[in-house]
Design a protein around this nucleic acid. Structure first.
Length: 590
RNA sequence: GAUCACGUAGCUCAGUAGGAUAGAGCAACUGCCUUCUAAGCAGUCGGUCACAGGUUCGAAUCCUGUCGUGAUCACCA
């Protein structure tokens, strides 16, 4: 069965844009009407205005011409049309929806596969190995994972990639802290590895802050200046040099610390039910970046400064690529990782970096460097940026060293678990509580447009009413409980009877599912998974309304019951499909 | 100071390929469990789409300016 919208588009193009097909094709606005009264506005709305300017009379003429043509050509499914305020409204026959239902039952798919051999890499999470994953990571992970899952169901060859920033100043800070501020007596070994290393890191930052304050007071200089005279800061720099020189002691502690952190990360990922296809470590790729930069100097793309640091000129500003002591920086290792990926995959069609919007400039510089080096791969790179998660009015970000500015994912999860446990009416087993609270957390983060700041307020997350993950899970469980009582496989499809019996209620649900492809297109175009949660919420509302108003089981007319059961089955599959994409746990019982 | 985002109901957010009467949830207030899961459903209340111009037959949506909030501005990652 051909896609109706596509058929309408073809007719539209044939009649309205003989010239300039390609240019106009993208502007054609043909949508299923799920939001306005179908008695007045029909099933499908075609916006006549979106193409080119016409005066009112001509618009009506063209609209009616188009309407006639559509009715003639698609007579099988279209029974009338009208023209209102520059919209051509198409009214569909019930037969169309019966056909759609039949197809859903037969094929059980909601999307047409688009591609099978295109390779897309989605890099997300990208933690530093010096502290636990926090809410900023959570947002990152959920955006990345959802986008990756959508590409996956569309048939793309997807690689979910985690890049761990396991080298650099930050990890040296934890090493120094372990060496100087802790001994066997005051070390706590009974906590999760990443939290343990986090304690080391925060201890260092605290001590550094103290020292700098003292120095700047003593010599009456600014804090930025004072860093130069800081003993701790010096120790860290030396540690980094030792590490890059592969000194035994440095490497030994570094390995031990990282091991602890990864163990902790894995537990958190397991709780979130997030899996990666590959894990890259910057410690293994940064040397490629270093080499690349040294070559660039020979080719006069990068320059050596007076103090021996290496820089790149971007908008007349110096971007440092190597420190004057020869050690690498963030951007160096970023280049190295990219080179590694090119080597590993030879060719990929798209690499999406899911990274916060504070790094927009960083990626602009990166792409510019690649362009300057004639690495055309930069055209296949995209920085998917998202806004911050704020807590207590402050951004949650690594630069804030005060531990109170962080909420770690682990803490949020256990907080939510407790809340759900106390709130639910009947006593539930822990597993169900966990799945409910996980769904609630995920939904709450995905549902906000990545461009917007999430003002993290525990009261926003701790909600079980209305537009929440629980609502979706509940809707699923409700429908499931009905289907459990009947053997759906034994239900026959009575086309002619169904045609007579199908009503507005049933049709409006099917029409909503028909909008799905448009929704997916928009999500990928905008890189915005929140569109999906909003859509799923809208559908769930419709279904709950249907459920409450109509009886499904034990109705007099057995054919009607069958029709409704079949629709329930489709809805159930549809919810399942999308909850999988969003990573929201599916519960058969709540 | 420069650059980039964002500003829609008391609160949290949809809507921004210009197009039909600006939509949800929360909070407040009404109804609905003897009947497939009431973590639900139906309803009431609530808006000068920050402000001012401009483009257009038509602007929450595009452009300019102002104000407000946030991020970035390079040897942190």
């Amino acid at each position: 069965m051909k896609n109706l919208i596509k058929q309408l588009k073809d007719i539209y193009i044939k009649i309205l844009c003989n010239n300039n097909k390609k240019k106009k094709k993208n502007n054609i606005n043909i949508l299923y009407n799920n939001y306005k009264d179908n008695n007045i506005y029909g099933d499908i709305n075609i916006n006549i205005n979106s193409i080119f300017f016409l005066n009112k009379e001509n618009k009506k003429k063209i609209g009616i011409k188009l309407g006639n043509k559509i009715k003639k050509k698609l007579n099988k499914y279209v029974y009338k049309y009208n023209f209102k305020s520059n919209y051509l409204n198409i009214f569909l026959k019930k037969r169309y929806y019966i056909k759609i239902i039949k197809n859903y039952i037969k094929f059980n798919t909601f999307l047409k596969k688009q591609s099978s051999n295109k390779r897309y890499i989605i890099e997300f999470s990208s933690p530093n190995s010096n502290k636990p994953l926090h809410l900023g990571h959570l947002r990152n992970i959920l955006i990345g994972n959802t986008i990756a899952n959508i590409y996956k169901v569309l048939g793309f060859n997807i690689i979910k990639s985690q890049l761990i920033n396991d080298r650099g100043i930050h990890i040296c800070k934890s090493i120094i802290a372990l060496k100087y501020f802790f001994n066997k007596k005051n070390l706590k070994f009974n906590i999760k590895g990443d939290h343990f290393v986090g304690i080391l890191y925060f201890k260092f930052e605290k001590e550094l802050k103290k020292e700098i304050k003292l120095i700047s007071k003593k010599y009456n200089i600014k804090k930025k200046e004072a860093i130069k005279y800081s003993k701790l800061s010096n120790l860290v720099n030396k540690e980094l040099i030792n590490w890059e020189k592969k000194k035994k002691e440095s490497i030994y502690i570094w390995k031990k610390i990282n091991k602890l952190v990864y163990k902790g990360f894995n537990i958190t990922y397991k709780k979130l039910n997030i899996k990666f296809d590959e894990i890259l470590y910057e410690s293994k790729t940064y040397l490629l970046g270093k080499k690349f930069i040294l070559k660039g100097i020979e080719r006069n793309i990068f320059f050596i400064d007076k103090d021996k640091s290496v820089y790149f000129l971007y908008n007349k500003k110096k971007i440092i690529l190597l420190r004057n002591n020869g050690t690498s920086l963030y951007i160096t290792q970023e280049i190295g990782t990219l080179l590694y990926r090119i080597k590993k995959y030879k060719n990929f069609n798209l690499l999406i970096y899911v990274v916060g919007n504070e790094q927009i400039n960083h990626f602009k510089v990166l792409f510019e460097i690649l362009k300057n080096n004639k690495l055309l791969i930069y055209k296949n790179l995209y920085h998917l940026s998202y806004n911050t998660v704020n807590f207590l009015g402050k951004k949650i970000k690594s630069r804030y060293i005060n531990k109170n500015k962080y909420i770690f994912i682990d803490d949020l999860i256990s907080f939510m678990n407790n809340y759900v446990k106390n709130k639910i009416k009947k006593k539930k087993i822990d597993k169900i509580v966990e799945l409910i609270s996980l769904g609630a957390i995920k939904y709450q983060f995905i549902k906000i447009n990545p461009k917007k700041i999430i003002d993290f307020n525990i009261n926003n997350v701790l909600r079980i009413k209305g537009n929440t993950g629980i609502y979706i899970q509940y809707t699923y469980a409700r429908i499931y409980s009905i289907l459990k009582k009947k053997n759906i496989k034994k239900i026959k499809f009575y086309e002619i009877k169904f045609l007579k019996l199908i009503k507005k209620n049933e049709i409006s649900i099917i029409r909503l599912i028909l909008e799905y492809e448009t929704i997916i297109d928009r999500i990928l175009k905008k890189y915005d998974p929140s569109i999906l949660t909003n859509y799923i919420y809208f559908i769930s509302k419709k279904i709950n309304n249907f459920y409450q108003k109509n009886k499904i089981l034990n109705i007099n007319n057995i054919y009607k019951q069958n029709l409704r059961l079949i629709i329930c089955k489709i809805i159930l599959n549809f919810l399942y499909f999308n909850m999988k994409i969003l990573g929201i746990p599916i519960l058969k019982k709540i």
